[in-house]
Every structure is written in C-alpha cells, then in structure tokens.
Simulated assay, not measured.
Amino acid sequence: MDTSAYLRAVAEQTSTLADWVHGRDATTPVPTCPRWTLADLVDHVSATQRMVTMLVGERMTEPDGAFARYVPSPADSTEWRAWLTDGAAEAKRAFESVADDTPVWDPSGDAAGVPFWSRRLFGEICVHRADAAAALGMRYELEPEHAVAAIEDWLNTMTSRGYWENRPDFAGAMRGGGQTLHFHATDAPGEWLARREPDRVVLDHAHTKADVAVRGPAAELLLVLSRRRPLAEAPTLDLYGDRALLDHWLDHMDWVADG
C-alpha cells in the first residue's frame, strides 16, 4: 500500500468506528485495553490522528510542538462521530500536501516520516477498531490484504531501531541468541521471520523453518500479535514449535498495555 491508499483506508475505518461509538456510553470499559473506557479509546484515536496531522502538515522535524497542542475529544458522545470523521479527513488532507520524502520526524529512526506515519495511522485504526468492537459487541472484519498491511506495520514498528533504543525494557526482554519466530498469513501474501539478536530484532520476509511458527487467516493473526485476542481464543490459527518462545514474545509486546 502507498501513502494515499493508507489514508483512504484510515478515513474509511475511522468512519466505521465513528458510527459504532456515536451516542454510546462513554464509561463503557474496553476489555482489550483494561485501563480504558470508550471515551479513552475515542480520545486516543482522535489525538493520535490530530498529532500526526500537525507533524505532517506543518513539516515538523521535532515532535514537541505537536504533543503540546493536544486537544481532548468532546465529553458528549453524540459529538464523537463528527469529531472522528473530521479528524481523519484533516489527516488525509495533510498527507496530500506533502511528498513521501518531505522531512518529518520519524521515531523509527529511518528518516522517512511521511511513509512511516501513513502506515502507522493505518495500523492504529485497524487495531483500535478491534478494541471498539470488543467493547461494544460489534463484529470485527478486516480484509485479508489490509490485515497483512496492519501486521506489517505492527512488526516493523516494534522491531524498528527507534523503538529498540527508546524502550530499554523491551530491548532487554527481546535480546537473544538467534531465536526465530515465523508468522504466516494464509489468506493473503504475508510472511515474517523475526530473529532475536543481542543488539536488535531482525525482521525478514521469508518462508523458512523457525523455532516457533504461527499461521492462519491474516485478521486473526493480527489480533493475536497485537494482543487483542489470546491464542487460545483463535482456533483458526495453527501453532508449531516452541510455545514458550511465542508466549515470551507476546508478553513483551507491552506497547498495547497503554493502547
């Protein structure tokens, strides 16, 4: 997917989320993010999109200016639909105003902020729409190709140099001696091999034998990798190899502990 395709999908999925949450009880708990209510979820999605809109639209090479201008979501849930759809539309316009090589702060360390943030907004809405579905009892559906793209975002972000350097707890847990995990989507092209090295996690796209492998439909794989669904509740996924290695990996995907 390219930048424009990511932002079209962000707008579409945000519109679906907006319809789901419109007029709902703001105190509804979000079981996949146990510290959050529905209001927290809406605020997080909106704040992230608006922060990225500022970063990209104003060509910021440092994030502090965007973080300092946080605006909370409305307290009245009947205003959430317009708030969310307007925010996604503003983000789409911001990306349309720049090129992929426009200098924008890139927390991954790759100095490619525009492509990074377009992919990141897409991955965010895919996962947080699953949170809303869990909170509201809605059916979560995601096209296999979109689920593959969201997995790509999740794994690339978590294994990026910037994430490793800025999360010493994660780096300490993920250091290894070459242990390998293989993730394989079966309903759309998508395979990833994560290798735990002493100084980083190396991510490749390869079909090869690994210490542990998980394969199955891309949407189900996304929910398990993002800790939105326990493996025990994902019967369409097949597990081969070292279950303890997979459990260790998932246990330390603690990015999701705060959303």
Rank of each mutant, 00 (worst) to 15 (best):
A234S: 15
A5H: 11
T53K: 01
P144C: 04
A135K: 04
R200G: 04
H207L: 13
A206V: 13
L121Q: 13
A171I: 11
D247T: 12
E124P: 12
P31F: 09
T186L: 05
S4R: 14
C126T: 15
T157V: 15
L38A: 06
K209Y: 10
M60D: 02
A9E: 15
L136T: 01
G162M: 09
T53M: 06
R129W: 00
L136E: 06
V104Q: 02
R119S: 15
W105M: 07
L223K: 11
E12N: 08
H248P: 00
T157Q: 13
I151H: 07
G259T: 09
L221T: 06
N156W: 07
A99Y: 00
E191R: 06
A210S: 09
P74R: 02
S46Q: 13
V127P: 03
W117M: 08
L7V: 13
F67C: 05
A149F: 01
L203A: 08
Q13C: 03
H128T: 09
P198W: 06
V71P: 01
Y6E: 05
T157S: 15
A75E: 13
G57K: 01
L246E: 01
S4Q: 14
P230V: 07
R59D: 00
D199Q: 15
F95G: 06
D153W: 07
H205N: 12
E79T: 12
E79N: 08
L55R: 03
M1A: 13
M253F: 12
T16A: 15
H146I: 03
M60T: 02
L250C: 01
T236E: 14
E143V: 00
L181A: 10
A26Y: 01
D238M: 08
A18R: 11
A219N: 08
T236D: 13
R227W: 02
A94E: 00
D204V: 03
D258R: 06
R196H: 13
G176E: 10
A218V: 04
R24W: 00
E58A: 13
H205W: 09
V201R: 02
G87M: 10
F95E: 08
V202E: 05
D199A: 15
Y70P: 01
W164Q: 06
V104F: 12
L121I: 08
